[in-house]
Simulated assay, not measured.
Amino acid sequence: MPLSASSPRTTPAPLQGLRMGMVCGDEGAPGAMLFQQAARELGAQVTVLDPTRVIEDGAALEDVARLLGRLYGAIACDGLPPAVLRRLATAAVVPVVDVQAVLAPVDGRGTEAEKERRRITHAVQAAEAVQTVQAALLAALR
């Protein structure tokens, strides 16, 4: 019997109720979309934030980090300069996740072992890539 849209969720949702702010310049980019899908399937609510409004609005980055920490349980950053990402992570009171680091095993950046993992990932279905990102996301938020 097929599951209907009203059927209860059968997979665990370890991030159920987590509100995540995602600072991302291009939410339609494949990596950003994969990250959002993975987070949402784990139960998180993802709100995409424009990086120009977050880091270039005249406010001190530390103040922005504190504000984001009040609004969200985690902050995901995609495409921010490493120095800005480090400052944000240092000032924030919630976990800050580097989306590119989470996606590295899927898209081939990183060590040779991660590159081998990329070759394997390309040989399997897209759902398995989502599971890889979900595992990395869960590990990053621990």
Rank of each mutant, 00 (worst) to 15 (best):
C24L: 02
C24R: 03
C24K: 02
C24T: 10
G25Q: 05
G25I: 06
D26P: 13
D26L: 11
D26N: 10
E27K: 14
G28N: 14
G28D: 13
A29V: 13
G31D: 02
G31C: 03
G31F: 04
G31H: 04
A32K: 12
A32F: 11
M33N: 13
L34A: 08
F35W: 06
F35S: 08
F35I: 11
Q37Y: 01
Q37L: 03
A38R: 06
A38G: 03
A39G: 04
A39Q: 07
R40V: 04
E41I: 05
E41T: 09
G43Q: 05
G43W: 01
A44F: 05
A44T: 14
Q45N: 07
V46Q: 04
T47L: 08
T47N: 09
V48A: 11
L49G: 04
L49W: 03
L49H: 03
D50P: 03
P51N: 12
P51S: 11
T52Q: 06
R53P: 00
R53F: 01
E56Q: 11
D57E: 09
D57L: 09
A59M: 14
A59P: 12
L61E: 02
L61Y: 02
E62N: 08
D63E: 13
V64C: 09
V64D: 10
L67M: 14
L67T: 15
L67K: 15
L68F: 00
L68H: 04
L68Y: 00
G69P: 02
R70D: 02
L71W: 09
L71D: 08
Y72G: 02
Y72M: 03
G73D: 06
G73H: 05
G73L: 06
I75G: 01
A76R: 12
C77W: 06
D78N: 11
G79I: 05
L80Y: 00
P82K: 15
A83N: 06
A83K: 13
V84N: 10
V84L: 11
L85K: 07
R86W: 00
R87C: 02
L88Q: 02
A89H: 09
A89E: 07
A89V: 09
T90V: 07
T90F: 01
A91V: 10
A91K: 10
A91H: 05
V93D: 07
V96P: 03
V97C: 01
V97P: 00
D98E: 15
D98C: 13
V99H: 14
A101H: 15
A101V: 15
V102M: 10
L103Q: 07
L103H: 04
A104Q: 15
P105L: 04
P105Y: 02
G108N: 14
G110F: 02
G110S: 10
G110P: 01
T111V: 14
E112H: 12
E112C: 06
E112G: 07
E112A: 08
E112K: 09
A113F: 09
K115P: 13
R118F: 06
R118C: 07
I120N: 13
I120R: 15
I120L: 09
I120D: 09
I120F: 01
T121H: 13
T121F: 07
A123G: 11
E128S: 08
V130N: 04
Q131N: 05
T132E: 12
T132H: 05
T132P: 08
Q134W: 01
Q134R: 11
Q134F: 00
A135G: 05
L137P: 15
L138Q: 07
L138A: 00
